[in-house]
Design a protein around this nucleic acid. Structure first.
Lengths: 203, 203, 203, 203
DNA sequence: CATGAATGAGAATTCATTCAT
DNA sequence: TATGAATGAATTCTCATTCAT
């Protein structure tokens, strides 16, 4: 007679997986991929290293999942903005602002998805992440071009460049030892740049 | 009691250092940071691994130096373009084209300087590299704004975003398994994006 | 205070133990000792890994028991042959044929009992297994020598050598990647060899 | 200017490789494959674990090499016996005696080459080892059959069975806790068995 | 100065065994 | 009694760095 898995246990399982993910994200945010050793994750999650493997088949998979989850969340937020009924220019402005502002909060994590190839599996995950981000903007750009709000352009490349330019918002704070007290001017300047790049005129 | 180094010996030392640098750059260009093991560099440079340490105190330092050198070279090329007497718009266009085109040739190498944190020391080197690239564009942008060719903007941030957008030209080919047969359209689209971002209108 | 075990419960216990044994044998037969992980056995038996430990104190014990059971079965078959009233030569021939043919069916399983030391406990079990096989042949050989059908010989050693020679029938197919289409010639040649070794002339 | 590798250093290198091999053989002889962990080998050889990898690319390769070396040595000895001008029967007798006697000295080591599959690479090595032993006897048997000294038989299978029967000489002492004071009767009995198996009559 | 053998601290992964539920 | 999540020791292999020759 099999014992029914109590909902309590299910909760613990889900909780553990969650703790592992959170620990992974936290470590990436702290110091990048290098901080993410299985034992570091385990300790940070309050589990043994062996237990990590009950939830993730390999370190690569864990890393990819962490990226995916983070990206999913960001993409969802962008999607919400893009799916409104406003003018394309306004949506673009809002999306850029949101992305850049949020990215500045956890620069390492968002940054991780453009990093140097580490592993074929991780790489494959990264390509997918980039595509997801790209797709949101591609859709918005195409919409704007169709409505005549944006000049004609290769929307795929533009979307990629947007993401590329955004990363600067991530890379700079990551690199800079001093943290800027006020991020608003930076956000604003980046937004202006991107807006101009797409629309051809300032907002 | 110090003996005066013979110029012959100095030449050999300089030659060895050069060979190590070239080997390092070549390895980064081939396969990224992962290919750069001390022994691989040593073999490629025709020296022993122990000898590397006579010229560089650590692997990090070697890596940073290699990036610096590569960046110096690129910056020099950009500088030449920026220092001409043409219109700022033309110089901008030329600089963008040059940068993107060259980056596409050795994606790994140019890419390496924005890659994920590997090591605090390497990171510090990367900041400097980014600044150098940035400075060239800052100068050009300021010039353009002063002449009234470009709209007013935070030239520091714009320069950084340019570099960030360029990155996409590097990251995409590195990530993508299939190599695009013709890079011209990609270069052109990126150039358009960047030009618009700075100037506010298409070229 | 001990409660008397209901016969129903006893039946279930016996059933579980049996299922575990069968699963273990099946796994050994499939891929050798390497396939026998507690969790693999548990899954194959439809139980949890923890439950295995209610029936067997350790993996070694389980493995030994599985070998014992398998050997018991084979020994029983040989015993039946040996206990008939035929000439010793005929019984020898039949026993050899039976042993080799059966061994070729499940080479991994029969093979396991001569395999490399894995564990002192398993090793001890193996000694017993070998002795059991040996005893059947010892009895037959002694009988044949007594009747004057076989030449005088150290029957203990001869029995051991027989088993040793048989193992070749097991080891070869296990080692060889290509499976022989027709096993009959092999069985026949092995039988001839063994028969000659005991009887001194061909059958 | 490259420094010439001193013959002293060459000697040390060869010595190290040798020490590793000896340590490996000793460990196999002591307790089988299981005792052969890289760290155990390293410690036993008086080196660091990392150093093992300067001489052997992997544990499998090390193990295979150890087997090969041991087998080569044994095969050479057998070859010498087989290549003499005596009668096939005499050579057979001598070869059997030699093999069995020597095997009894280091039962685990010689035994290791028939062990259960551990690893495809090791397995491949084992097949080759078995073939080498087999070939020596095949040659001798064929010679004997051609001369009419031995009855007609499948020499390939007979050779394999011989080796199989020999292994018993290894397995028994390995298994038995008590070491027989006098090995001569055992050697003699095994020889008799094998001789009869091939020749059809006692020696 | 140059060499490259040696070091040894990690890192990822596996799995028998335990024990709270 | 049955479960299976959790443990954690053990193992193989890598590579920056050192140092005797």
């Amino acid at each position: 007679m099999k014992y029914r898995r109590s909902s309590e246990m299910e909760a613990r399982l889900a909780d553990n997986r969650d703790r592992i993910m959170r620990a992974t994200r936290a470590l990436i945010a702290q110091g990048g991929f290098h901080e993410v050793s299985i034992s570091a994750v385990a300790e940070s999650a309050g589990l043994s290293s062996g237990s990590i493997y009950r939830y993730f088949p390999s370190k690569s998979e864990l890393y990819v999942q962490a990226l995916m989850d983070a990206v999913d969340h960001e993409v969802e937020i962008l999607q919400t903005i893009v799916d409104t009924n406003q003018h394309a220019t306004d949506r673009l402005h809002a999306a850029i602002h949101s992305f850049v502002t949020r990215a500045l909060e956890g620069p390492h994590l968002a940054y991780a998805f453009i990093a140097e190839p580490i592993d074929p599996q991780v790489d494959a995950g990264r390509i997918i992440c980039r595509q997801r981000f790209g797709e949101v903007f591609v859709k918005l750009l195409r919409d704007g071009v169709d409505r005549g709000e944006f000049p004609d352009q290769d929307v795929e490349v533009s979307a990629a460049c947007l993401v590329g330019a955004f990363t600067e918002a991530l890379v700079r704070p990551v690199a800079a030892t001093e943290k800027p007290a006020d991020k608003k001017p930076l956000v604003e300047a980046i937004s202006q740049f991107c807006f101009r790049a797409v629309v051809g005129v300032s907002h």
